[in-house]
Amino acid sequence: MPGEVIVTTELLSCSYREGRVLEDISFQVERGDYVGIVGPNGSGKSTLVKALLGLVTISSGRATLFGTPLSGFRDWHKVGYLPQSLHLVNPVFPATVHETVGLGLLSCKKFPKRLNTSDKNKIKLTLEELGILDLKFKLVGELSGGQLQRVLLARAIVNDPELLVLDEPTAALDPETRGKFYAMIADINRTRGVTVLLVTHDSGTIGEHASKMLYLDKKLLFYGSFNEFCCSPEMSSLFGEHSQHLMCHRH
């Protein structure tokens, strides 16, 4: 249902031992949005998405997913998550690509969790869709950065999520692969109608694809469309002439 609110935060704050990382963040994401979350290093981008996924404790305020407060949210099959892969995969982990992508289907399963023939077909179709079917029997530790990123994306979308959260997914990729990756996410957003939250440093490239930008520096400095983002006085004061450069990048 277009216009349906998928993610809400109200005055959300998070703190670590060294102090506040996020302060009074309020915004809403609607179904079908493709939101690029940008900001400088240490601005709280990753903390924000981790807080939305229940991976980081919220110190005050509230967040909801699909209208349900986070503490009571159980429909994890509606959510796909892709973290920074380099930090994630143990290079000696003996799982094949097929087994790894299959992990993405566990959120749909009841105890005892088992994968059946239709699940195996789903894995195959997802690998085909992302052009990595030939990697099916490779070990995850043997993949290149770009291949691993696609495999983890396959894991995140194999259960047909309604919300896809990506935390700096392209940090380890070269500029060309990065552009292709963003285009792939844009395609998933368009064809599957998946709502996307994507954390990145790369405000120029993400601007080519995202429908909304969220600029963060511990506080929410901007949330709106990309055109508004480029023309806003907040961005001009932050980027100076670079805000126009971002605009040119898109056109």
């Binding site: 996924l53 229940g54 991976l55 159980r74 994890w76 099959h77 959510v79 998550y81 973290p83 994630l88 995969v89 143990n90 982990f93 799982a95 087994e99 790894t100 992990l103 993405g104 566990l106 959120s107 399963k109 969790k113 088992r114 994968l115 894991r155």
Partner: peptide, 17 residues
């Protein structure tokens, strides 16, 4: 499968419920 999932990544396992 749960043991496999937490061995691969505890963070991803949590987001799988």
């Amino acid at each position: 499968h749960e043991l496999f999932a937490i061995s691969f990544s505890e963070e991803l396992a949590m987001v799988s419920g």
